[in-house]
Design a protein around this nucleic acid. Sequence first.
DNA 1: CATATATATCTACAATGTAGAAAGGACAGC
DNA 2: GCTGTCCTTTCTACATTGTAGATATATATG
Lengths: 112, 112
Amino acid sequence: MSPASSPPLGVFEEQVLVAVLRTAGDAYGMEIRREIERVTGRDLAIGAVYATLDRLEAKRLLSSTRTHGDGPSRRLFALRRAGAKALAETAAMRERLWKGIDVRALVRLAGA
Amino acid sequence: MSPASSPPLGVFEEQVLVAVLRTAGDAYGMEIRREIERVTGRDLAIGAVYATLDRLEAKRLLSSTRTHGDGPSRRLFALRRAGAKALAETAAMRERLWKGIDVRALVRLAGA
DNA sequence: CATATATATCTACAATGTAGAAAGGACAGC
DNA sequence: GCTGTCCTTTCTACATTGTAGATATATATG
């Protein structure tokens, strides 16, 4: 059952990691923020994004490199192997959690 | 795009809510704990579970009632409409987040 | 009654989530 | 080359959620 190694990702950590994947190649702070806002529909302070990016880099789930050349320098992020692993485990665990739950019924119960 | 009303559920909050659903009718602290341990493969302090149950009840996503009759009295939890709504929104948002991500590729990247 | 068992509560602290303000540097126009 | 502006990042602080462990309380059992 995959023994659930490391502590689980938080939901915002997961969002950031996936956003890095989605914006791959162009994954810097502002862009990651835009992407998360787009997907979740919520407004986000830029500080929130960087705080989490920093923590994920400290845990070695992400790496970052500096951009030079034209325009303001950017800090580009990329998923490390450990980051991919963490994401995959998170997804697998959640699948087990929800397996057998009738989401339709849930939505019906939620409605009016 | 469903405007993302209330603050998103935390991952443990979600686990607790779904566990209540899974153990429906018999959803009291110890049982909920067992269910989460079963699904996630991690050990859990009972205090962790109750702290979260209390917070979810305070937010009115859960309700609880006391059991009497035979055996020690239990505090039985049930999902409120708002709880079902929160769960459904959480699931929907995550679906948008992951849409288009190739999970196979992710797992491959994670492997070895 | 005395001890064990099942359940719940309390207290405290660590980790994550989030905001807002400040800082730095490239570029435009003067 | 100064001034202001835009884009990006950094810093600081605090709120919320995650988690453990010890303690309380009631019921059952010998």
